[in-house]
Amino acid sequence: MKQKIAALLVKYPFLKWATNRFVLVTLFFIVWLLFFDTYAFYDHQTIDNEIEKLEENRDYFQAEINSDDKNIKKLYRQEEVERYAREKYYMKRENEDIYIIDSDKEYPTEETN
């Protein structure tokens, strides 16, 4: 039996290294940490992607907040309040008519061939 093992070790020298218990334990822990631990590599990738999305959302909403703050500061002036009311709520002054032109509609045009 020992002769067969010795013959195998001579024929395949990596078996001596691969059957070392320290190597096996180290490989076990590496596999464990990569795939099965609560801080596994795949979980880290998923969490990192989620963090990127949340940071993008934070940047977007921060820009929106800054824009809204600028608009609020504008509305402290009476002229801006009047302009905003006329544009958004179609309010009008006395003796004034408002015509709403909807430019979003597409009107079909006839094409001649």
Score class of each variant (00 low, 15 high):
residue 40 A to M: 01
residue 32 W to F: 14
residue 34 L to I: 04
residue 2 K to P: 00
residue 25 V to C: 09
residue 96 E to T: 04
residue 77 R to V: 02
residue 71 N to C: 11
residue 81 V to P: 02
residue 38 T to I: 07
residue 45 Q to A: 09
residue 112 T to E: 15
residue 81 V to D: 06
residue 33 L to N: 09
residue 87 E to H: 07
residue 63 A to V: 03
residue 22 F to G: 15
residue 60 Y to N: 00
residue 20 N to R: 00
residue 95 N to P: 06
residue 45 Q to T: 13
residue 11 K to G: 07
residue 40 A to K: 06
residue 60 Y to D: 06
residue 64 E to S: 02
residue 109 T to K: 14
residue 1 M to F: 02
residue 21 R to S: 14
residue 24 L to Q: 12
residue 1 M to A: 13
residue 109 T to L: 15
residue 75 L to N: 12
residue 29 F to D: 10
residue 1 M to W: 06
residue 91 M to H: 08
residue 89 Y to M: 08
residue 97 D to E: 14
residue 44 H to T: 09
residue 97 D to V: 05
residue 108 P to F: 12
residue 88 K to S: 12
residue 85 A to G: 06
residue 70 K to V: 10
residue 76 Y to G: 11
residue 44 H to R: 15
residue 25 V to K: 11
residue 49 N to F: 08
residue 39 Y to N: 11
residue 55 E to C: 08
residue 59 D to I: 03
residue 103 S to P: 07
residue 84 Y to V: 01
residue 100 I to D: 13
residue 42 Y to L: 13
residue 59 D to S: 11
residue 14 F to L: 10
residue 39 Y to P: 00
residue 21 R to M: 09
residue 52 E to Q: 06
residue 82 E to F: 03
residue 62 Q to I: 00
residue 110 E to C: 11
residue 88 K to D: 01
residue 103 S to N: 14
residue 82 E to V: 05
residue 47 I to T: 12
residue 92 K to G: 11
residue 3 Q to W: 03
residue 95 N to L: 01
residue 40 A to H: 02
residue 92 K to L: 01
residue 100 I to W: 06
residue 26 T to I: 01
residue 88 K to T: 02
residue 21 R to E: 14
residue 68 D to N: 12
residue 53 K to G: 10
residue 56 E to Q: 07
residue 42 Y to N: 15
residue 68 D to H: 06
residue 80 E to Y: 05
residue 85 A to M: 08
residue 6 A to H: 09
residue 4 K to Y: 04
residue 40 A to E: 01
residue 38 T to S: 11
residue 100 I to P: 07
residue 18 A to D: 03
residue 11 K to I: 05
residue 24 L to K: 14
residue 16 K to I: 05
residue 5 I to A: 09
residue 81 V to C: 09
residue 86 R to V: 01
residue 27 L to Q: 04
residue 68 D to L: 05
residue 12 Y to R: 07
residue 94 E to S: 14
residue 45 Q to M: 10
residue 113 N to E: 15
